[in-house]
Structures are given as C-alpha cells and as structure tokens.
Design a protein around this nucleic acid. Structure first.
Lengths: 183, 183
DNA sequence: GATCGTCCTGTACGATCGTCCTGATCGTAG
DNA sequence: CTACGATCAGGACGATCGTACAGGACGATC
C-alpha cells in the first residue's frame, strides 16, 4: 500500500508549506503553478499530481495555517486568569507580527480570496465563528457583559491592528485602550 | 491647447472609475490591461496612452477613492456632539457596507498591495496617519484619555469589522461594546 | 526476473499577460 | 485648404499562465 508513498506525502507537505510562504509574498492570485513548484523544489507537473488545481493547494495551505494560529491563540486565553491579563498576553503575542509578516498577510489574503471563492469562504467562516464562540464562552465565564459582541470586536480589532500596523506609529498605550473593551 | 483634450480627460476618469470597480471585483493583481480597458469602453492601447503602467492606474484610483471616504468619515465625527454619538453614527455609516461591498474590499486590497509597492505604501500611510491624527485631535477635545491610541484602535477596528463581516453573525450589541472604547 | 503501483519528468496546448509601435481619425489653428 | 497635435485603434512582441498527457524511474510484490 505504501511503497514510496511516504515520500509522496513529504512532497505534498512541501507544496503546502511553499504555498503558505508564497501567498503572503506575492498575493493569493499571483501564486502560479510554476512559482509554487519551484519553491517546493519540484516540477510544475507534480503540483497537479498531488492536487487538482492551484486553488486547492492555496486553500488547504491557508486553512491549515490559520487553524494552527487560532488554536494557539485559544491557549493564550484559556491560560489567562483575568480578561486584563488576557489582553496583555494577546498584545504581547502579536508583538511578533509587524504587519508585513507572513502570518498577518496570509490571514488578510485569505479573507479577500474567500470573497471570491465560496468553498473557501465557508471554511474560513467556520474557523472564525468557532474561534469567536470559544472566545465568547471564555468572556462569559469571566463576567464580561455582551460576550458575543465583545468577542467579535476583539477578533476584528486584532486583524485590523495588524492590517494598520505598517501605516503609522504605534502607540504604546494600546493595552490601556483595549482593556476598556473587557471592563 | 485643448482641442479634444476635454474628451481625453473624460476617458482618463473612466479608466480610474473602472479601476476602482475592478480592484474589489478581481483583486489588485488580477486587474489586467485588457480587462481594465474593456470595462472603461476603450482599447488596451488607450490605457498606456493615459498612464505609464497598469499599476499607476490602480494606485491613483485607490488613493483617490480612499481619500474621499476618509474625508466623509471626518465630517461624520466633527458633526457629532459626543463620542458616544459619534460611535453610533460611525456604526450606522458602515451599516451600508457588508464586507463584500466595493469600498471595504478596495481598502483591504490596497493595504495588501501597499506591502508590495513602496510608493503606494507611502501614500496610504500618509492618508491613514492624517486620518488618525484628526480623529485623535477630536477625541482630545472631547476629553477621551489616550486619544492617539484610541484613534488607532478605532480605525483598526472599523477595518477589522468590515473584514470579518461576512464570516459570521453580527451582534446587534456592537455599539455597546465600541462605546467602551471612548468611555 | 517480470509485473505493478506510485511518483515524477518533459513537453505541449491554447490563452492571456504587459507593453510598445505604427498609423488612422478628427477637431482646430494657420 | 493644409498642417498640426491630441486621441485612439490595431496588431505585434516575448513571456507567462493553468492544465493535460505520454512516458520514464524505481521500489515492492509475486
């Protein structure tokens, strides 16, 4: 059943990794079969051997990467004792992202691509809705009023801050302001 | 000096309008010379007669459209009497955008394109920084503490909410939560 | 040692890309 | 009436695009 199959899976993973790199670098619609293959160290034909289209590679890579980040962020909240502490940890964790980093751009590129691809949209909506639900549950436990709306605003603000990050000076008082959201 | 020049300017404007339509529809990097020309009702050659490259058309169109929206939002704030009223007006004004509307997508597409084009980045950064400064000034007048950081968070949250808008149910309590930011 | 399944290479197809160049059109000034 | 300048049409260039298909390499199976 699996003679050289193990190597095949490894190449498949390399293609997904290459896609996750290239989406932020070049933009979703500018990732071509050949560029993707070159980055993964294979010939263009291999892309269509493992996937039925380039769109499929991008979709699977984006979903996978986003799911991973969201679960990491989950743990960040669940390990915090109070909402204020969680906000601090949250801001500290997005310190590593400067708005031009791969992960921020991957998220935004995927959001935009989802407006033009129904299947992608469905999957992204599922991911984000689940995250907001878990966040709202946590806020409920910690006595924050309007937990659902607060979760929605928090999630949106994180993405918005990353989107704006390169566009001007960043105030060190962000923490103070964001804490108001969970007061 | 201006024989048929007036018509030339009109065609130029049509090209810019077509670009502002197509950037949200197809994505920044997927707006081609021919698609753009077809939408504007001209032949591809005309694009390079009025502009030196397709990038230039997109850049000028995006900057112009964004500047217009930002000044409109300016007036929305300056005509509000209190921060809470301003938040209400702000949320009411973005009610018209559902996240798949041209203007939301144009903003996000431009942000992303700016990460790959230095000249565009400079211009966008100027626009956003100016907007945040004016917003911060207004917040200062209305006794909101940490006005600069609040303005940054508000601006980011608006874009983030539009980005997330299609991804899940929208809570009607957004106003309540956002008001905390200016309390 | 022949057969088979998996994985990959090489090549080809038509379509589209950005850009440039040449020449037609046409109102206007001399 | 002619010459001019601005505006646009049409075609051409090489490059790249997504995808498909035929065949080779190679370890596992019998």
């Amino acid at each position: 059943m699996a003679p050289t199959a193990k190597q095949g899976q490894e190449v498949r993973q390399r293609l997904l990794a290459a896609a996750a790199e290239l989406i932020p670098e070049r933009g979703w619609s500018a990732v071509s079969t050949r560029i993707l293959a070159e980055r993964a160290g294979v010939t263009p034909s291999v892309v269509h051997y493992h996937f039925s289209s380039v769109q499929d590679v991008l979709t699977e890579a984006a979903i996978s990467a986003m799911r991973q980040v969201l679960t990491t962020t989950d743990e960040l909240f669940t390990s915090a004792t109070t909402p204020a502490v969680a906000i601090d940890a949250l801001l500290a964790s997005i310190e590593q992202y400067d708005g031009t980093d791969p992960m921020s751009l991957l998220f935004t590129e995927t959001y935009l691509a989802a407006t033009r691809d129904e299947r992608l949209h469905t999957q992204i909506a599922g991911l984000v809705t689940d995250f907001r639900t878990r966040l709202a549950d946590w806020l409920t436990i910690h006595q924050v009023v309007e937990p659902a709306a607060t979760a929605a605003v928090l999630a949106a603000t994180i993405d918005g801050l990353l989107l704006h990050r390169t566009l001007g000076p960043e105030s060190p008082a962000l923490t103070t302001v964001l804490r108001r959201l969970v007061s």
